[in-house]
Computed example of a mutant assay.
Amino acid sequence: MTDEDVLSEFRAAGALLEGHFLLSSGRHSAHYLQCARVLMSPDRAGRLAVALAAKLPRDLRAKIDKVVSPAMGGLIIGHEMGRALNVDAIFVERPTGTFELRRGFSIEPGEKVLMVEDVVTTGLSSREAIKAVEAEGGKVIALACLVDRTGGELELDVPFHPLVSLTFPTYAGDELPPELAATPAVKPGSRKA
Protein backbone atom coordinates (compact mmCIF):
# COMPACT_ATOMS: atom_id res chain seq x y z
CA MET A 1 0.00 0.00 0.00
CA THR A 2 1.50 3.32 -1.09
CA ASP A 3 1.29 6.56 0.91
CA GLU A 4 -1.38 7.78 -1.53
CA ASP A 5 -3.35 4.55 -1.04
CA VAL A 6 -3.30 5.16 2.72
CA LEU A 7 -4.44 8.77 2.33
CA SER A 8 -7.18 7.58 -0.04
CA GLU A 9 -8.46 5.32 2.74
CA PHE A 10 -8.57 8.34 5.09
CA ARG A 11 -10.30 10.52 2.50
CA ALA A 12 -12.87 7.81 1.68
CA ALA A 13 -13.74 7.56 5.37
CA GLY A 14 -14.02 11.34 5.82
CA ALA A 15 -11.12 11.05 8.25
CA LEU A 16 -8.75 13.66 6.79
CA LEU A 17 -10.11 16.86 8.33
CA GLU A 18 -9.24 20.50 7.65
CA GLY A 19 -9.90 23.43 10.00
CA HIS A 20 -8.32 24.55 13.30
CA PHE A 21 -7.53 21.69 15.65
CA LEU A 22 -6.01 21.48 19.12
CA LEU A 23 -3.95 18.28 19.20
CA SER A 24 -3.40 16.05 22.23
CA SER A 25 0.16 17.39 22.35
CA GLY A 26 -1.24 20.89 23.02
CA ARG A 27 -0.12 22.12 19.59
CA HIS A 28 -2.43 23.48 16.90
CA SER A 29 -2.85 22.28 13.31
CA ALA A 30 -4.92 23.03 10.21
CA HIS A 31 -5.16 19.26 9.54
CA TYR A 32 -6.36 16.35 11.65
CA LEU A 33 -6.46 12.64 10.95
CA GLN A 34 -9.48 11.10 12.68
CA CYS A 35 -8.24 7.51 12.90
CA ALA A 36 -11.42 6.39 14.66
CA ARG A 37 -13.32 7.19 11.44
CA VAL A 38 -10.89 5.37 9.16
CA LEU A 39 -10.93 2.35 11.49
CA MET A 40 -14.73 2.16 11.93
CA SER A 41 -14.94 -0.03 8.82
CA PRO A 42 -13.68 -3.52 9.73
CA ASP A 43 -12.63 -4.13 6.11
CA ARG A 44 -10.65 -0.88 5.95
CA ALA A 45 -9.09 -1.45 9.38
CA GLY A 46 -8.07 -4.94 8.31
CA ARG A 47 -6.50 -3.68 5.06
CA LEU A 48 -4.52 -1.02 6.91
CA ALA A 49 -3.31 -3.52 9.52
CA VAL A 50 -2.23 -6.03 6.86
CA ALA A 51 -0.33 -3.23 5.07
CA LEU A 52 1.31 -2.13 8.34
CA ALA A 53 2.26 -5.70 9.25
CA ALA A 54 3.79 -6.13 5.78
CA LYS A 55 6.03 -3.08 6.40
CA LEU A 56 7.59 -4.74 9.44
CA PRO A 57 10.85 -6.59 8.74
CA ARG A 58 10.24 -10.34 8.45
CA ASP A 59 12.69 -11.19 11.27
CA LEU A 60 10.86 -8.74 13.58
CA ARG A 61 7.44 -10.20 12.73
CA ALA A 62 8.72 -13.66 13.65
CA LYS A 63 9.73 -12.49 17.16
CA ILE A 64 6.45 -10.84 18.22
CA ASP A 65 4.65 -12.66 21.05
CA LYS A 66 1.93 -10.06 21.69
CA VAL A 67 0.61 -6.73 20.46
CA VAL A 68 -0.06 -4.01 23.04
CA SER A 69 -1.81 -0.73 22.30
CA PRO A 70 -2.59 2.34 24.38
CA ALA A 71 -6.29 3.00 24.86
CA MET A 72 -8.24 4.59 23.30
CA GLY A 73 -6.71 5.41 19.93
CA GLY A 74 -4.69 2.25 19.53
CA LEU A 75 -7.43 -0.25 20.41
CA ILE A 76 -8.82 -1.04 16.97
CA ILE A 77 -5.58 -0.97 14.99
CA GLY A 78 -3.89 -2.98 17.77
CA HIS A 79 -6.58 -5.64 17.59
CA GLU A 80 -6.34 -5.79 13.80
CA MET A 81 -2.53 -6.01 14.00
CA GLY A 82 -2.92 -8.97 16.37
CA ARG A 83 -5.15 -10.59 13.74
CA ALA A 84 -2.69 -9.80 10.91
CA LEU A 85 0.24 -11.20 12.91
CA ASN A 86 -1.74 -14.08 14.47
CA VAL A 87 -0.85 -13.11 18.05
CA ASP A 88 -2.90 -11.90 21.01
CA ALA A 89 -3.64 -8.18 21.20
CA ILE A 90 -4.21 -6.41 24.50
CA PHE A 91 -4.20 -2.80 25.65
CA VAL A 92 -3.06 -0.54 28.44
CA GLU A 93 -5.29 2.21 29.77
CA ARG A 94 -5.08 5.22 32.09
CA PRO A 95 -7.76 4.90 34.77
CA THR A 96 -5.78 7.16 37.11
CA GLY A 97 -3.57 9.00 34.59
CA THR A 98 -0.82 6.37 34.21
CA PHE A 99 -0.93 3.49 31.76
CA GLU A 100 -1.52 0.07 33.30
CA LEU A 101 -2.82 -3.36 32.42
CA ARG A 102 -6.34 -4.17 33.60
CA ARG A 103 -9.23 -6.47 32.63
CA GLY A 104 -7.25 -9.61 33.41
CA PHE A 105 -4.58 -8.85 30.80
CA SER A 106 -1.05 -9.96 31.57
CA ILE A 107 2.40 -9.96 30.05
CA GLU A 108 4.77 -12.80 30.81
CA PRO A 109 8.32 -11.87 31.85
CA GLY A 110 10.46 -11.59 28.73
CA GLU A 111 7.48 -11.62 26.35
CA LYS A 112 8.32 -9.72 23.14
CA VAL A 113 5.80 -6.99 22.46
CA LEU A 114 4.96 -4.91 19.42
CA MET A 115 3.53 -1.57 20.57
CA VAL A 116 0.87 -0.36 18.11
CA GLU A 117 -0.58 3.17 17.89
CA ASP A 118 -2.90 4.94 15.50
CA VAL A 119 -1.04 8.28 15.22
CA VAL A 120 2.28 9.26 16.80
CA THR A 121 2.80 13.02 17.11
CA THR A 122 5.24 13.57 19.99
CA GLY A 123 5.74 9.98 21.16
CA LEU A 124 4.63 10.77 24.72
CA SER A 125 1.86 8.14 24.82
CA SER A 126 4.16 5.59 23.20
CA ARG A 127 6.92 6.15 25.76
CA GLU A 128 4.41 5.93 28.63
CA ALA A 129 2.84 2.74 27.24
CA ILE A 130 6.28 1.18 26.69
CA LYS A 131 7.14 1.95 30.31
CA ALA A 132 3.95 0.18 31.46
CA VAL A 133 4.83 -2.93 29.42
CA GLU A 134 8.37 -2.96 30.81
CA ALA A 135 7.01 -2.61 34.37
CA GLU A 136 5.13 -5.89 33.74
CA GLY A 137 8.31 -7.61 32.56
CA GLY A 138 7.65 -7.42 28.82
CA LYS A 139 10.16 -6.28 26.24
CA VAL A 140 8.91 -3.87 23.59
CA ILE A 141 10.84 -4.74 20.43
CA ALA A 142 9.31 -2.11 18.12
CA LEU A 143 6.64 0.56 17.74
CA ALA A 144 4.32 0.49 14.72
CA CYS A 145 1.65 3.05 13.84
CA LEU A 146 -0.65 4.01 11.02
CA VAL A 147 0.52 7.63 10.84
CA ASP A 148 3.80 9.23 11.89
CA ARG A 149 3.33 12.96 12.47
CA THR A 150 6.65 13.44 14.32
CA GLY A 151 8.42 15.10 11.41
CA GLY A 152 11.31 12.72 11.96
CA GLU A 153 11.91 13.96 15.50
CA LEU A 154 10.80 10.89 17.46
CA GLU A 155 13.30 9.71 20.04
CA LEU A 156 12.70 6.12 21.15
CA ASP A 157 14.89 3.24 22.22
CA VAL A 158 13.04 0.82 19.89
CA PRO A 159 12.67 0.65 16.10
CA PHE A 160 9.79 2.70 14.69
CA HIS A 161 7.66 1.48 11.76
CA PRO A 162 4.91 3.83 10.52
CA LEU A 163 2.62 2.96 7.62
CA VAL A 164 2.78 6.57 6.38
CA SER A 165 4.63 9.71 7.50
CA LEU A 166 2.92 13.09 7.17
CA THR A 167 4.35 16.48 8.03
CA PHE A 168 1.41 18.80 8.49
CA PRO A 169 2.73 21.91 10.26
CA THR A 170 1.83 22.32 13.93
CA TYR A 171 2.02 25.48 16.02
CA ALA A 172 2.28 26.52 19.64
CA GLY A 173 -0.70 28.55 20.85
CA ASP A 174 1.31 31.79 20.72
CA GLU A 175 2.65 31.12 17.16
CA LEU A 176 -0.62 30.66 15.27
CA PRO A 177 -0.78 31.92 11.70
CA PRO A 178 -3.55 34.51 11.18
CA GLU A 179 -5.91 32.08 9.39
CA LEU A 180 -5.85 29.71 12.40
CA ALA A 181 -5.94 32.47 15.01
CA ALA A 182 -9.14 33.79 13.36
CA THR A 183 -11.10 30.59 14.07
CA PRO A 184 -11.73 28.73 17.33
CA ALA A 185 -9.84 25.48 17.83
CA VAL A 186 -11.71 22.17 17.90
CA LYS A 187 -10.42 19.32 20.07
CA PRO A 188 -11.41 16.16 18.13
CA GLY A 189 -9.10 13.67 19.90
CA SER A 190 -9.79 11.46 22.88
CA ARG A 191 -7.16 12.86 25.23
CA LYS A 192 -7.10 16.11 27.13
CA ALA A 193 -4.32 18.45 26.02
Rank of each mutant, 00 (worst) to 15 (best):
L163F: 05
G97D: 00
S29D: 11
S25A: 08
T2S: 15
L156C: 12
A89R: 01
L48N: 06
L180N: 07
L146P: 05
G78A: 04
M72H: 06
F91E: 04
G104M: 09
E111D: 03
R94E: 04
K192F: 06
V87H: 06
K192Q: 10
P169L: 08
E153C: 00
E117F: 11
T183F: 03
E134V: 04
M1T: 12
K112F: 02
K131Q: 12
S125N: 09
V50R: 07
P109W: 06
E100S: 07
A84H: 07
Y32A: 07
V158F: 11
V50W: 11
M40C: 13
V50T: 10
A30S: 14
E100H: 02
F10I: 10
L114Y: 03
E9A: 15
R103L: 09
A132G: 08
V92H: 03
L180A: 15
V87K: 15
L101C: 07
L101P: 09
L124G: 13
P70M: 09
V133C: 09
P188C: 11
E179M: 01
I64D: 04
A36C: 08
G46D: 04
G151F: 08
G73K: 12
V120Q: 04
A13S: 15
S125E: 00
A15L: 13
A142W: 08
T167P: 00
L60S: 03
L16K: 13
R94A: 06
G104P: 01
D59N: 07
D118I: 03
V147G: 00
R11C: 07
L48G: 08
D157G: 15
P109V: 04
G138I: 02
L33W: 02
V120L: 00
A54N: 14
D43K: 12
A71V: 10
V120G: 03
T122C: 14
H28Y: 12
P70S: 09
A181P: 02
V119Y: 05
D59H: 06
Q34A: 14
E134P: 01
S165M: 02
L114T: 04
G151M: 03
K187H: 09
E9G: 05
L60F: 01
F10Y: 15
L52E: 11
V67W: 08
L124I: 06
A129M: 13
F160E: 02
V119C: 07
R83L: 14
L60H: 02
T167R: 14
A45R: 04
D5E: 14
K192T: 13
M115E: 10
R94I: 02
E134A: 10
V6M: 05
E111H: 01
V6K: 05
R27E: 15
A185K: 08
M115N: 12
L176D: 12
D148Q: 10
V164K: 02
V67F: 01
E93H: 07
E4T: 14
A185W: 01
G82C: 14
